[in-house]
Design a protein around this nucleic acid. Structure first.
Lengths: 206, 206
DNA sequence: TCGCAATCTTGACGTTGGAAAGAGGCCAAA
DNA sequence: TTTGGCCTCTTTCCAACGTCAAGATTGCGA
């Protein structure tokens, strides 16, 4: 789709171009620095062109969030599937690795996905994505917990999600491992995930 | 300080008034909806008046973050001190309760304190606050871990902070306990904190 | 081939953060 | 007490923003 300089009046695939430039822009300028006009500029299009593809700026951000959740769950699935089926605890750790890998690769988008703004703005945008993430987590947890009560299942899910989310957020924020090497940071992350998985496993046999 | 309508050309304590209205505004409108001019409006002052007290909008936000961290650690300390000295694990849970209580009472400010924007914008603003929070956590953890290696101490601190942070963030985001009652939510939070404290205690004896 | 609807541009409006310049008031030095 | 200086606040202006309305251009189906 390498549009050369010679494009006509019509862009061809402006919607995708806006999503692409928007995604870069979010990471470059941050959530508050994000600008619809700059997005249009990078797609080499007038400032009002986006209106025909996204009703508002929040609409574009909502699309970014939607795709972010899809990629996040994909990343989790990929990592979990590198582990044998009969090692459920390790699969749980894999889920966490995929979670953190996506967040580390897309720090600002990740924050946007879980930001208070997003929740209000996109209404149902992130909800579907979050729901499928929840299902994925529940499925893997099922193999760890076997026959546990619903209460325990819920507690385990809360705990697992909270640990992996909290850890990577604090890392992205510089609160954890401020000047650690990338290697050392990964080790710290794995340690946290291992402790989490062990605790979850303990939920199964009280 | 109840300024009546009859104030002269000078405000008297504009700085504090801006901090106060700014804080309300953040919670009302969210981070992206925050506006310096609206802040000034609420302090009944012209839109350029804030410039003499805060170099920029980010400067005002930085001050909000600074005070937020002070209050956060205060809330944690208060809750921890309700627990007897000789129950270190319970004190750790108390820390988490204080943490979550502040976050629940100031959801948007809390997000701002840990937002990617904040980190870049305020540079050192949140750093001091975060450092004292880290010290507080380390002190309480010391009583749980007794003579553990520095590595274990670090892992325990990572884990404890990650769990309480992740849980409350996911709650504020509606990802955990979307339609639970406040009571039920607190129970889920306490369960997560208890699991965290137990895990940390296990760090002490491997 | 023609006409229409979708796409894109241009221009405008109200709002924002910030800079510049002037008005007003407080306080310390004389 | 007067006066000068400095801090505070206001007014005015600017570029940039999101959004809306109108017009230009184009591709596509009838």
């Amino acid at each position: 789709m390498t549009r050369s300089k010679a494009r006509g009046y019509h862009h061809g695939d402006l919607r995708e171009a806006l999503v692409a430039s928007g995604r870069k822009l979010v990471e470059e300028k941050g959530i508050r620095g994000f600008t619809l006009r700059e997005c249009a500029r990078r797609a080499e299009v007038s400032h009002a062109a986006p209106a025909h593809h996204f009703a508002s700026m929040d609409d574009l951000l909502a699309e970014l969030v939607r795709r972010g959740f899809a990629e996040l769950t994909a990343s989790m699935t990929t990592e979990a599937e590198r582990v044998a089926e009969d090692e459920p605890a390790a699969r749980l750790v894999g889920l966490g690795v995929g979670y953190m890998a996506f967040a580390a690769a897309n720090p600002t988008l990740f924050q946007l996905m879980f930001s208070r703004e997003a929740n209000h703005i996109e209404a149902k945008a992130g909800d579907e994505g979050a729901a499928s993430l929840r299902r994925l987590l529940a499925a893997v947890l099922d193999d760890v917990l076997l026959e546990a009560s619903d209460d325990v299942r819920q507690q385990a899910a809360d705990f697992a999600w909270a640990t992996m989310h909290g850890f990577i957020i604090l890392v992205l924020e510089g609160e954890i491992g401020g000047r650690d090497s990338s290697r050392a940071l990964k080790a710290r992350g794995l340690a946290a995930l291992a402790a989490m998985a062990e605790t979850v496993a303990r939920f199964a046999r009280p």
